[in-house]
Amino acid sequence: MIMMFLWILLGLVIFLLLALALNYNAMVQLRENVRNGWSQIDVQLKRRHDLIPNLVETAKGYMAHESETLERVMKARQQAVNATGLKDKQEAENVLSGTLRSLFAVFENYPNLKADQQMLRLQEELTSTENKIAFARQYYNDEVNRLNTSVQSFPNNIVANLFGFIRADFFEIKDAAEKEAPKVQF
């Protein structure tokens, strides 16, 4: 009788250990995805910071009167480059996005500039980078969402507390024309 009880206990322990291992591995995977997502955002932000001086340089030749706008963009860029930590970065990138948007609005008044081949290429690169930032953020936030849900729900939260898995922060950019995730239904 006791023998049987021991066997059942052993079985239970093995089962629990297995479940623990699976849980742990799943969470490690999630954490890696979040890190990967963050590094993707970082790469693209850096790319944006590298492109902006070129853009400003090209634009200068055409728009001498708008030097103030151009300076604002460069200043915002410098701040974004210097920013460390998620919250600061968010803040700085939001400012940079705002100044860029006003710069593009000003471009509309310079037909010569819009026709410049170099400018067209730069604009394509910048559009692409903006999209990449948006997609990287989307991927990152999706993964953060999954990690956070996983860390908080039972029984994963026990494992999470045991091994120090913590919630990650979302990367948010305030943007009026933000695309919402559509609900997919069939």
Partner: peptide, 20 residues
């Protein structure tokens, strides 16, 4: 080619969206 460059960029963007 500018068209091809745009296509390349789009491919990179979508690659980022899928996890890189």
């Amino acid at each position: 080619d500018t068209y091809h460059q745009m296509f390349r960029n789009i491919l990179d963007e979508v690659a980022v969206a899928t996890g890189g």
